[in-house]
Design a protein around this nucleic acid. Structure first.
Lengths: 161, 161
DNA sequence: GTCCCTATACTCGGATAGCAAGTGTCCGAGTATAGGCGG
DNA sequence: CCGCCTATACTCGGACACTTGCTATCCGAGTATAGGGAC
């Protein structure tokens, strides 16, 4: 089991967007440059975020990306789900029905117990991620590096009018 | 994010081993046949379980696999960890230190907040899996199909002496 | 009859191909803007 | 001086190669057993 690198990139990038002034968008190229990420590949993940309704894209010359909702209403789970998909990581293929070990059809009215256990754990994982919003992370005093946008980010915004 | 199919196979196979009489081993070929699994590939995962100390292999003619500990002392987390590895699914590559968004070195004395949130969620997931032992699943009344070993499994064991 | 030796059959274990998904990149479609032109 | 039109530059979006890791398989190393032979 291994997460896509895009998860880390997307969360950090969303935190950057959370630090922007209200309603202002940041182009994908600049967003990638902020953390020295490959712009073309980050754009691929931004598309996923747009489809999931987490961020919205502004077309045209002064366009870019911005959060679709206030940062306090977007959870880390929303971002991760947008990238990794909302399907379960564990896929029950019902092997209990195969081979000599298969029982009678009446035994299969309830879901596979193994599947239920795995699903429950995944639920706990997702629930834990839902406790944190982008606002919690972006405005945390200990990691307020994103608010140190004076030197670079402000210049970018000012250069764009 | 997606689990290896081997996780499902391994858990179910361990449940079969849990239903065996004390100290008796079952060959990998028979274990695979029980659920119509590819024997050669299941063997690969069984090796991982042996390395992790979850099951032990008995070499020789009447050898096979058996649980290394009582089923009540093996959790689902043990099995999953043996297959998927104990490394974290989320790998923090410290992109916060890259590009114009990078802060001063003194800001990096604490772990990345994003990494901590992801790690905490993973901890919750693992903790949930630790609540269930193989005994809980194998001897559950609702899914006692594994105890219906009379027809096939008993024959196999008897044929081996 | 008992003990030992050897050949056998069966077991696990690691080394070897094939494939899907993630990784990385590029170029085209679409839009708001800026400037020029006409009234 | 004001409004409209056009060309431009910039943006996002989807389509195209490449690499890593999972999937699937095979054959060789090792061991307990079973049988036969010697004592």
């Amino acid at each position: 089991m291994r997460f896509s690198d895009g998860v880390e990139w997307s969360v950090h990038s969303c935190l950057v967007l959370a630090a922007l002034p209200e309603g202002v968008g940041l182009p994908g190229a600049k967003l990638a440059e902020f953390h020295s990420l490959p712009a073309a590949y980050l754009a691929k993940h931004m598309q996923a975020l747009v489809r999931a309704g987490v961020v919205e894209s502004i077309p045209g010359r002064h366009g870019g990306y911005r959060l679709a909702r206030p940062a306090s209403e977007i959870t880390v789970a929303d971002v991760v789900t947008a990238i990794e998909g909302n399907r379960s990581a564990f896929r029950c293929t019902e092997i209990r029905r195969q081979g000599p070990g298969a029982g009678q059809p009446c035994e299969y009215q309830t879901a596979c117990l193994v599947s239920r256990v795995m699903g429950g754990a995944e639920q706990a994982w997702r629930s834990e991620l839902s406790k944190w919003t982008l606002a919690d992370l972006a405005f945390d005093p200990a990691s307020a590096a994103y608010l140190r946008q004076d030197a670079w980010l402000s210049d970018v915004l000012e250069a764009r009018g």
